[in-house]
Write a protein that binds this DNA or RNA. Structure first.
Length: 419
RNA sequence: GUGAGCGUAGCUCAGUUGGUUAGAGCACCAGGUUGUGGCCCUGGGGGUCGUGGGUUCAAUUCCCAUCGCUCACCCCA
């Protein structure tokens, strides 16, 4: 038997209503904040991701699905979508048509990691990017959109974490400060953290190992070494969040793994999904557009993991979706009038009434059970004595009432089924 | 890449201290009188006990390998 690739999942009809509910909520919410949908290809030239996300990051260095196509071009399945959106923004000159572009996307992403709760190799993200303004109100708006969506899904155990990484020069200076602090203590750090000392020193803050945390407890914080502008912007973000009633925590240890972030970063975590607790994350990236060859354009955005969000909903039982139903189920009483049943179904569908009937020649009883399973509002019996007299027997499945309707009186049938 | 746990019907799981035809619930199908559901009752189909090898008179049960799944580390959404 051929099985699905490790880390991929079929989303079956039984789960689809949750996905559709989420997608509908997303579109409504983004519409509310006036974001426009953009759909970019799921694969891009490999160089795009290397340049934007960062050559040294785990995502680029060991998690991408990269292959050569027949023309020997190195292609990568997108591991995230900011790079693709920014590429499109530059290539299509979106900045020339509009000074501020507020965009959102929904779609699959790919990373070759070991699967676990809330982590798949093909997974889905939605996200937003606002390109063209340095206003910290947009940073806060990103947080608000994400928070609004998660709250609308009924999620409870949420924590909004924010931090500021400052501008690059400041961050580089700070790294030196941190390096000085850690130099004497380096030998005491865990093996992983000693490695991070050279590759990505800020990440040592993230370590879950006791000794590391002990050492980092007294470490100088980036947030105390920020530039004037970053401090002011961060204050605006905090003030706005307070004004609109979104609780948050400043987390000086919140360091995002992608290289392109500047200034504000944030994350919303949930305690309802296992160890992969980040439902969404994002931040400002004022230098990315230029780095990818566009005109200098500030930007801010976020991405959220849809599987994780739905997992949190499931664990918190926060969604109570009603089952799908059909307006009518047609029941064939005599085997030989199959075609008449099909024709009636066709007529009903033309009137926008959802309906179905049996294709397996099953008994009336079996057809009734089927109607019940499909949550049919009405059942229409076709055949028997009443059919010979030119009538259809229509039964309301919720109260069991039946009534005869003349086949010629199609209007009456429609209005009954629509009632 | 590292570590741990688990693989018995479509699903959730029992079971065998190694021994005849491997079980339950749910789901599916058919019936419970001539054309009427949700509840209930009866019956039925469906399993190479993940795969390969070893030990043994005998393996679903013990051992080894392999594949897969799950969770955690790592990293991230």
């Amino acid at each position: 038997m051929i099985k699905a690739i490790t880390g991929t999942k079929d989303i079956l009809p039984a789960d689809i209503s949750r996905w559709q509910y989420l997608e509908k909520l997303l579109r409504q919410t983004f519409q509310l904040f006036n974001y426009k949908e953009i759909r970019t290809p799921i694969f891009e030239e490999t160089a795009l991701f290397a340049r934007s996300i960062g050559e040294e990051t785990d995502i680029v260095s060991k998690e991408m699905y990269t292959f050569k196509d027949r023309s020997e071009t190195s292609i990568t399945l997108r591991p995230e979508n900011t790079a693709g959106v920014v590429r499109s923004f530059i290539e299509q000159s979106l900045g020339a048509q509009q000074s501020l572009n507020k965009l959102y996307y929904i779609g699959p992403m790919f990373r070759q990691e070991r699967p676990q709760a809330g982590r798949l190799r093909q997974f889905h993200q939605f996200g937003a990017e606002a390109l063209g303004s340095t206003s910290p109100l947009l940073d806060a708006e990103m947080i608000q959109i994400a928070f609004h969506i998660l709250k609308s899904l009924g999620l409870k155990n949420l924590i909004v974490k924010i931090n500021s990484l400052g501008i690059p020069e400041v961050r580089e200076n700070y790294k030196n400060v941190l390096r000085d602090y850690l130099k004497s203590k380096k030998e005491k750090l865990s093996e992983d953290s000693r490695k991070r000392f050279d590759t990505n020193i800020l990440r040592i803050f993230d370590s879950k190992i006791e000794v590391d945390q002990q050492i980092m407890k007294d470490a100088p914080l980036l947030i105390d070494h920020l530039d004037e502008q970053s401090i002011n912007d961060f204050t605006v973000v905090k003030n706005y969040l307070s004004k609109v009633g979104i609780p948050f925590e400043v987390d000086p240890a919140l360091v995002r793994g992608l290289d392109y972030y500047t200034k504000t970063t944030f994350e919303i975590v949930s305690s309802s999904v296992g160890s992969q607790s980040a439902l969404c994350g994002g931040g400002r990236y004022d230098l990315l557009v230029e780095e990818l060859g566009g005109k200098p354009t500030p930007g801010v955005g976020f991405a959220a993991g849809m599987e994780r969000i739905l997992l949190a909903c499931e664990n918190e039982k926060s969604l109570n979706l009603i089952n799908d139903s059909v307006d009518a189920y047609l029941i064939r009483i005599d085997p030989e009038i199959e075609m008449e049943v099909a024709k009636i179904a066709s007529d009903l569908r033309r009137e926008n009434l959802s309906c179905d009937y049996d294709y397996l020649n099953r008994s009336v009883k079996a057809q009734m059970r089927e109607a019940n399973k499909f949550n049919a509002k009405f059942v229409v019996f076709v055949g028997g004595d009443e059919y010979k007299l030119g009538e259809l027997n229509v039964k309301n499945l919720s109260d069991g009432n039946q009534q005869l309707i003349k086949i010629t009186d199609f209007e009456k049938l429609i209005s009954l089924l629509k009632s």
